[in-house]
């Protein structure tokens, strides 16, 4: 997994609550046996028209948000299916962080395993950052994981919570399986008790 320390990137606001993983990556793309190649199918049914052309009204297709790497969304982002294809698609599209008032549990876990930072901020902060992104072309945010802070261009900082272990894993790009295997003796003791 790639380490995550700091990131500066363009912000795109997706004004929807309860975005489920069926929308993030529809089921017809889950038949692949590889871990890669999902980015082009991200938000497929919203992003493309019936004939396969990009939907010019969908926010990710607006030229002003091209190259965005920070997604802002409504409450309970990533609900529904446990498919890890959802964070794979987000990451492979180019997203490094997602800002929302809340996340679904399984999705949030899956993000950490793939070097994506899910950042929960109060609803009023999300609303105002989302408005800034709409009002200001090329709007960017800086994310400092070490400081647990989202920093605006004017210097305003919004602190966020993250578990110590998740933070450690992201900062170091840690292989979690390797971490657990260092306690192999404890696992064996448990199994033989």
């Amino acid at each position: 997994m790639d380490a995550f320390k700091e990131h500066v990137g363009r912000v795109v606001p997706l004004d929807r609550i309860n975005v489920d993983t069926d929308q993030i990556i529809p089921k017809q793309f889950l038949k692949r046996i590889e871990r890669t190649g999902f980015g082009e199918f991200l938000f497929y049914d919203w992003r493309y028209l019936e004939n396969g052309d990009p939907n010019p009204e969908f926010v990710l297709n607006l030229p002003r948000y091209a190259g965005a790497s920070i997604l802002i969304a409504g409450v309970n982002f990533g609900c529904g299916s446990s498919r890890e294809h959802a964070p794979w698609a987000l990451q492979q599209y180019g997203f490094k962080a997602i800002l929302a008032p809340s996340f679904a549990d399984i999705f949030r876990n899956n993000c950490y395993k793939n070097g994506i930072l899910p950042i929960a901020l109060p609803a009023d902060v999300i609303t105002s950052l989302s408005q800034e992104a709409r009002d200001t072309e090329g709007y960017q945010l800086m994310i400092d994981l070490e400081q647990q802070s989202v920093i605006c261009a004017d210097g305003t900082a919004h602190n966020f919570e993250i578990g110590d272990f998740e933070k450690y894993c992201l900062l170091n790009g840690l292989d979690e399986i390797g971490w657990t295997l260092q306690y192999e003796a404890d696992i064996a003791v448990y199994e033989n008790r």
Partner: peptide, 18 residues
Amino acid sequence: FGIGTSEIEHVLATQCLL
């Protein structure tokens, strides 16, 4: 409970989850 693919790999390798 449901888990993602990285956690599936974790359980296959260690029979444990963090």
